[in-house]
């Protein structure tokens, strides 16, 4: 962050909210990473995406390329279309009867809207974690993890046992629940439930993980655990996270997209977006001038 901007920020924040005008609240730390030399392959490509609910247009011609095994954060004020966008990634927008979508989304160069693509298969490859943890209330922890597999018809006890342990370990939950696998998933704490939902998504043949404000219902400790987990998962999965929390976006992501009123305003390396945004609107947003 340039000194000039930082000073300006402080002034603005101090004028608006004098009580929380401490320097630490304003500081957005960006995890500095050496830009990798190898060119990452594109995992998801959004091509001229427009979405409508009834007659209201929610997305205006969004184009972005999301690299494999990176964390991409989507930030923006409420109602800017960021949730709508990631719900298109696994065709969840189709569950709203009035929703319409034009344009295309490519997963490994293949359109997820192609007639040969079953939304069921798309959703297994592109998993999703929601704002509120949603373990199925009548299922145990064990059953919650494998529910995607049992839907697929996997019945082999040995396979399932292995998958449960593997997924829970991946989701950094195994040590906390390994003795209580038969307990109801709803009995866990909020943060554990959210990691259970992540484990549930990992258990199917996941490639891309969409997270729709995964930490906004969690306390700070649970949040940091989920963020750590995101770092771990990045080694194997492509992660797209929608967040209201700019510090979080800065902490976990390599790329950041800023959206406003259904349009993609800026999409670049996280460090650049937060320290030297090329668009004035982005700068105004991340310095807290609106939103």
């Amino acid at each position: 962050m340039s000194d000039e901007t930082a000073v300006k920020d402080k002034k603005v924040r101090a004028a608006v909210e004098p009580t929380i005008a401490k320097s630490e609240t304003r500081k957005i730390e960006v995890r500095h990473e050496e830009p990798s030399t190898e060119k990452k392959t594109t995992k998801v490509k959004v091509d001229d995406a427009c979405a409508f609910f009834g007659t209201k247009q929610a997305l205006f011609s969004v184009n972005m390329e999301i690299a494999e095994k990176e964390v991409t954060a989507i930030i923006g004020p409420s109602g800017c279309g960021k949730s709508t966008l990631i719900r298109c990634f696994n065709r969840m927008h189709e569950t709203v009867p009035t929703a319409k979508f034009t344009g295309d989304i490519l997963l490994d160069q293949k359109s997820i809207f192609a007639p040969t693509m079953d939304p069921v298969v798309v959703r297994r490859r592109i998993g999703m974690v929601f704002q509120k943890p949603t373990p199925f209330p009548t299922l145990s922890i064990y059953e919650n993890v494998i529910v995607g597999l049992t839907l697929n018809g996997v019945r082999d006890k040995k396979v399932l046992d292995e998958k449960v342990e593997w997924s829970l370990r991946k989701a950094a939950l195994w040590d906390e629940v390994k003795d209580n696998l038969q307990k109801p998933g709803a009995a866990l704490s909020g943060g554990q439930q959210q990691r259970l939902c992540i484990a549930r998504a990992l258990a199917v043949e996941l490639e891309v993980l969409l997270m729709d404000e995964p930490c906004s219902a969690l306390d700070p400790i649970s949040t940091s655990k989920v963020e750590e987990l995101i770092h771990e998962l990045r080694q194997n999965y492509t992660i797209i996270i929608v967040t209201h929390n700019m510090q979080q976006a800065a902490r976990v992501s390599q790329k950041t997209a800023f959206m406003l009123n259904g349009k993609l305003v800026e999409y670049d390396a996280t460090e650049k977006v937060f320290t030297n945004p090329s668009n004035k609107l982005t700068e105004d947003y991340i310095t807290g001038r609106f939103g």
Binding site: N90, F130, T134, C197, A201
Partner: peptide
Amino acid sequence: VPNSYRESAKALGATNWE
């Protein structure tokens, strides 16, 4: 039944019936 259950089932690749 909260809609979030339906959504998470769908997001796991469940069909309508599932």
